[in-house]
Amino acid sequence: MALLQNNFPTFLQGFGYTLLSSIIALIGSMILGTGFAIMQIVPQKWAQVIGNVYVQVFRNIPLLIITFFFFLVVSKYVKMSGFTSGTVALMLYTSAFIAETVRAGILAVDGGQMEGARANGLSFGQAMQYIILPQAFRIALPSLGNQFINLVKNSSILAFVGGLDLMYQGNMVAANTFDTFSTYIIVAIFYLILTLPLSYYIQHLERKLKRAL
């Protein structure tokens, strides 16, 4: 407990950076992910190919490598800190998973609706925006929530590039105090404050959705 008291500002700072990184990456990956999901289902072949390649590449390589790539290689040309590199990597990595989730959501919406909307004179974009996407998001909400939890957990990758997040600060405290056991338990509790309530809320949503079906 003395450990927590002495290092409380450090843990709190880490918690703040973890939260900040997660929120930025969440917003970014939602936009990118939705974009690539739509690209995968538009009629244009070239867009489908780009969408597909993007999703397959980022889903199948480790987040750590993407992070190192930004931190050590890209930053030679575009200046970015460890925090920025980690957050950008996190955003790109998660967007591939969100693209898959949103795509599945869109496909779950009855195909007749698109035809109906088009027959009523809406363009593809309008039909997507007003008819299909709102329903798709509602269907995909539990999976999107899970992706957000994964994102928070994966933000611990920032520790490898001096990203000042919770894991990084935890390692620093552990290296200084040698009390690994208590330090990592405290770090765990901070992470659970973010992820556990969200996880229970998603389970609640899933049950509700199941009953509705």
Partner: peptide, 14 residues
Amino acid sequence: AVQDYATGMQALKS
């Protein structure tokens, strides 16, 4: 603070 010297040197270079 980084995890190892190899990363540190790369970070300096970039």
